[in-house]
Computed example of a mutant assay.
Amino acid sequence: MTHRDLEVYKVSMDLVMKIYELSGLLPTDEKFGLVSQIRRSAVSIPSNISEGAAKSSTKEFIRFLDIANGSLSELETQLTIIERLGLAKTEALLSNDIISIRKMIYRLKQSLNKKL
């Protein structure tokens, strides 16, 4: 089994696609601000999941899941800022995808902790 088999990886990759779509709708003067920030945060989530899954120890995998969860929180904050600035509607991403991914990361960590 690889990271590509993990549902949390698949869903977080879908989120990256949605973030790229959303970021394309933001004003061009945000290209080096919020656009760059939300793209980096979103890409970091599946990247850390895949890197963690490739590590040789369960403890390291859990650490990378924590990093992915931190990137998810960072993205959530940035989407809230975008919403509050009136630049785009982000409520659907916040309430559906982010919560779902957070729960998946939590459940995967619980499962991995049982192996320690």
Rank of each mutant, 00 (worst) to 15 (best):
I99Y: 06
R4C: 02
R84Q: 11
N69W: 03
I98T: 05
L112W: 03
V16I: 09
T90R: 04
T2M: 11
I45C: 02
Y106T: 15
Y9W: 15
G33F: 06
M17H: 12
F64S: 05
M17F: 08
L65N: 04
I62A: 01
K31R: 10
V11L: 05
S50A: 12
V16C: 04
V8H: 01
I99N: 15
S95Q: 15
T28I: 15
L25Q: 13
N96R: 09
T2N: 11
S73N: 15
L93M: 04
S44M: 11
V11G: 00
V43M: 10
G33K: 14
S36V: 13
E76I: 12
K114N: 06
G24I: 14
I105F: 01
G52H: 08
S36H: 11
K109L: 05
E74D: 10
N113I: 14
L93D: 00
L72C: 05
K109I: 08
L108Y: 03
A68I: 11
T77R: 07
K115E: 12
M1G: 10
I19K: 06
R63Y: 04
I99K: 15
H3D: 08
P46A: 03
V8Q: 03
L112E: 04
D66S: 10
I62V: 04
I67P: 00
F64E: 07
L72F: 02
N69I: 09
Y20M: 10
L34S: 05
D5F: 11
R63P: 02
G70E: 10
N48D: 09
S36Y: 07
I105H: 00
R84M: 07
K18D: 02
Q78M: 03
R84A: 03
S73D: 12
I62W: 02
G33L: 11
S41H: 04
K115Q: 13
T90C: 01
I49N: 01
D14E: 14
S56A: 12
V35C: 07
S111G: 07
L26I: 08
R40M: 08
R4F: 04
G24T: 13
E74L: 12
G86Y: 10
L79I: 06
S50N: 08
S73R: 15
L26H: 05
A54S: 14
T80E: 15
M104P: 02
D14I: 13
E60M: 11
I101D: 00
E83V: 09
R84I: 06
A53G: 03
T2H: 10
D29M: 12
K31Q: 06
L94V: 14
G86T: 12
L6Q: 07
I99E: 15
Y106E: 15
L22K: 03
S100M: 14
L72E: 04
S23Y: 04
R40A: 04
S12W: 00
E21S: 08
L85P: 01
A68R: 08
Y20K: 12
F61I: 12
L15I: 05
D29V: 14
L25M: 13
V43D: 02
G70D: 07
R40Q: 08
L93V: 02
T58N: 11
E83R: 15
P46E: 03
G52C: 05
S57E: 09
E83K: 15
R63V: 05
S12D: 00
L26Q: 06
F32K: 14
V16G: 01
Q110S: 08
